[in-house]
Every structure is written in C-alpha cells, then in structure tokens.
Design a protein around this nucleic acid. Structure first.
Lengths: 155, 155
DNA sequence: GCATAAAGGTTACGTTTGTAACTAACAACG
DNA sequence: CGTTGTTAGTTACAAACGTAACCTTTATGC
C-alpha cells in the first residue's frame, strides 16, 4: 500500500490501493453484473448460484466440501442447499459409510440450468479477457488463486 | 474461464477460475483477516472502517463521493456514517452552497484511529507484497484498478 | 464397551443488508 | 414564479446473514 496523503489534492478518480478494498470492489462490481442472469430467470440468490456452480463444475460432493472450496460458511451453504432443493435443482443422496453427511447432486433440471449459465459465464469471462488483455487476465487469475490458496492454508 | 469437466477427477484443491468467484473469495479471505483490528478494538463494522478509510485517505467529502469511490450503496454509507458519528469518530459540516449534502469529516479521535489502523493496514499489505512478490503484487493492484474503473464507467 | 470429544449439518435469534418508498433541496423549463 | 424532474440522503420493512447453540453421527481414550 502506498502512503496516503490526506492533505493532497483528491481528484474524483482517486482509487485506494489497499488490496482488500480493491478486491471487494472488483468482486462487487463484477458479480452484480452477472447477478441478473441467475436471479431474474431462475430465482437464485448469489450463494445458491455459487453452490450450484461448484456442484456443476466440481461434481457431486458434500456440503463440507462445498464450504471449503467456495470459502462459504456452513450455515450459508445449508440454507442455499435447502433453497435449491425446494426449487428441484438439487437432490441429496445418503452416503453409506458416514451418515452425518449427504452427497449433493444437481438434478436433471439443475444440470440443464447450470449448463445454460455456464455458457453465459464463459461469455462474461471472455469480456474480461478481452478488456484486460489475455496476458493480464491470465496473470490476474493465477495471482488470485495463489492468494486464495495461501490464505486458506493459514486457516 | 477454462471449460469445466463435471466428469473428470475433482481433487480437493480444485479452484474454479470464474473471475467473480475468485475475486469474492480473495476479498473475503483477506478482509476477514484484517477485521479483528477495527472490530474488536474500536467496535467498527466493515462498512464503517471502509468509510473511515476513504475519508482519512481521500479527505473530507460528501456521502455521495464516498459511495462512488468505495462502490458502496448509499443506504450502507448512510448507516455507517450514523454509527461513526455516534462513536464520535466523525462529524458533519454543512456546505453552504448545497444544503442537501453535508461534508463528512473525521474528528480528532477518528483521525487518530485512522492513523493507527493505517499503520496496521500498511503492514498487512506488506505481507501480500512479500508472499506474492513485488512484481505480481503491483500487477494485481494495477489490474484490479483497471477492472474497477472499467466497470464503474459502465454504470 | 463406555465416556468424552469432535465433525457434519440444521435451527434460533439478533444484526446487517437491499429494495423501495419517502423527505428535502436544487435544477430546468414553461 | 410555479410545475415538473432530479439529486442527496434517510427511513421502513422484509430478506439474508453471522454467531452460537443444538442434534446426530463418528472418532478417540481409557
């Protein structure tokens, strides 16, 4: 973070360079733009779409695994799973060896919606790649992944 | 975004590379780590700290300006300002030429806390720079700023 | 084996948030 | 001027969230 200058000129374009803020802003702005696609058409909330995405792209898995991979709190996942289940986008299968957890699976309908949204998401991602340039885009993704892995391992 | 492989192997380290998710995760993980500094000691919430930071580093400004620069919704800012005011970290000054908006200013106490937190934030940021490497860190910041500016101009 | 602890999920409760409706002040246009 | 529209900010209400407590089931220690 570069030093701040409270007494210097403050043009309206001023952007803080404190990493957590930049990340937050970028996350907000980008995810808001994509929101309409899953919200208006399928009535899903952000967390529901996130859970669906992780199941669709990562395959059937338990709630715990979704929590870990998506960095989502277990209550958030629990509620999203319930909502997706009520919409018939998701179903649960008991795993014989451990009856505490269930395997979460997208239904046919859930898979179909995931497929459609994945197309839109891929297009959306292409606009980033286009506007940032392929190199910067790839660097951004790789650096973010590094950052996430580092912070996850710290607990 | 690379194509997903629902039927391939799914190691636990699998990370989706959909940019909005990566940004969200990175933002969550990093801001959570910093949270304790402003929350436990000064009783501030995330939005309050964000507003304080923007006032401290950007100088006195109206709520509208804070909204625009921090990409925060006006109701969130309104409530954060109220909370900061009640803690005596912030005061309002009427601007003569337009009585709709007021200038938000950190009090002496607010400035002192901002200064202390800025030190911590700078240290925190240095750990990113250290773990990512100075070049990658700089590239990350610059790319995020580009991304934010682009999406802000789109409305 | 039985007690105790830990892990996967859910529920309850208070707080925070977002959407929409509202107030007040300014601008534009006749 | 006065009517209409817009902007800055607040408030009301319902929805979503986080923390902590809880229920099961599995692991650990004796």
């Amino acid at each position: 973070m570069t030093p701040t200058h409270p007494d210097a000129a403050h043009p309206d374009t001023a952007l803080s360079d404190f990493l957590p803020f930049l990340l937050f802003q970028a996350a907000e702005l980008t995810s808001r733009q994509f929101q309409s696609h899953y919200q208006s058409r399928y009535g899903m909330l952000r967390t529901e779409w996130r859970v669906m995405f992780h199941l669709g792209s990562g395959g059937d898995q338990t709630a715990k695994q979704v929590c870990d991979r998506a960095s989502l709190h277990k209550t958030k996942v629990s509620r999203a799973v319930k909502a997706l289940e009520e919409k018939r986008f998701l179903s649960r299968k008991t795993v014989t060896h451990d009856r505490r957890s269930e395997l979460l699976c997208l239904t046919k309908q859930g898979q179909a919606i995931f497929a459609r949204l994945t197309v839109v998401a891929t297009d959306f991602d292409k606009t980033f790649e286009h506007s940032l340039g392929a190199q910067d885009h790839a660097a951004l993704v790789s650096t973010l992944q590094k950052l996430i892995v580092m912070h996850q391992s710290k607990g």
